[in-house]
């Protein structure tokens, strides 16, 4: 059974990964056999300089999901490369490094630093984190998305993945812009801008006032977005949004995603990615599929 997936020149042994920000820098989990079974590890987004993150409270529970406004707390790319990356590489699992920046120049500097770091499977551009205090996100603007992708493609020796925000009118249009600028794949979707109010105190439940909604609550919207986008672009899609089990992941694959990421549900069931992989293989066997490509985009219209 061939379940390997190719993005640019990188090959991933299987289609199951984790969404950035849901596995930490995963140093605590390296020993788990679950980690070694992943198709790729995507550690938490790093920025050029260290960021301390948002004031508490940073998360709240919502129906079948959660809102978060962590604020990309991270040690900065230099510390990440020196202290976190070696351990991640040691797992033997391909590493997709997620980066975010306030300017194109910062994105470019980080891409150069990653070139020097060596042996990375891909770079994911987090263009869509809704938690930093900016009015319009890069991922909400097709021209800005195209510009960042084009710049990083010129610099990076690794495949470049653009992570898209669902907080747009037409996500396929942004995906097309990324593709036209040379992106090797898109990952979709990031969290939905959201808030929850404590009516007793008449306060937001989130220190940052608003945050991003994730978890099973958003899954049907994410599946629809993947399906619409897959019909329009040729590059692979990494699909995510509320995946909890193999059935959920199969929805994304059938809709047209080439890889799937377990995100928020890692917090509830750390074994979920492994269960997803086992379930996908069982489904393929049951349906007499020998290649994952028979499954990807197999939706009947």
């Amino acid at each position: 059974m061939n379940i390997a997936v190719k993005i640019g020149k990188s090959v991933f042994p299987n289609p199951v990964t984790v969404a950035s920000g849901t596995f930490g820098h995963s140093e605590e989990l390296y020993s788990l056999k679950e980690v070694r079974c992943l198709g790729a590890i995507v550690p938490k987004t790093v920025t050029l300089k260290a960021q301390e993150g948002n004031p508490p409270r940073r998360i709240c529970e919502t129906p079948a999901g959660m809102i978060n406004a962590i604020g990309i707390e991270n040690p900065g790319i230099d510390v990440f490369i020196a202290k976190k990356l070696p351990g991640l590489k040691k797992t033997g699992v391909p590493v997709i490094v997620s980066i975010s920046a306030h300017s194109e120049n910062d994105f470019a500097l980080m891409a150069q630093k990653l070139n020097a770091a060596g042996k990375i499977a891909a770079i994911e551009l987090n263009l869509s984190c809704p938690n930093l205090k900016k009015k319009v996100l890069v991922a909400q603007d097709a021209a800005a998305t195209a510009s960042v992708v084009r710049r990083i493609k010129r610099i990076s020796k690794y495949p470049v993945i653009a992570k898209l925000s669902p907080n747009v009118t037409d996500i396929a249009a942004i995906a097309l812009a990324a593709e036209a600028s040379g992106a090797d794949a898109v990952s979709m979707v990031n969290t939905f801008a959201a808030m929850s109010i404590d009516v007793k105190r008449r306060c937001s439940r989130i220190g940052n006032f608003t945050g991003g909604l994730s978890g099973p609550a958003i899954r049907p919207i994410a599946v629809r977005m993947v399906c619409e986008t897959a019909a329009k672009i040729k590059i692979p899609i990494i699909g995510m949004g509320g995946i909890t089990n193999a059935n959920d992941a199969l929805e994304f694959l059938i809709a047209g995603a080439s890889m799937v990421a377990v995100g928020t549900y890692n917090f509830i069931n750390p074994k979920a990615p492994l269960e997803v992989l086992i379930g996908i293989m069982a489904y393929m066997k049951e349906n007499r599929m020998t290649d994952i490509r028979e499954l990807i985009g197999s939706i009947k219209r």
């Binding site: 920000g21 508490p56 962590i70 890692n266 750390p270």
Partner: peptide, 11 residues
């Protein structure tokens, strides 16, 4: 949320 130091939600 996670209890493992991954999500950084309980800081």
């Amino acid at each position: 949320a996670c209890g493992l130091g991954a999500c950084l939600g309980c800081s």
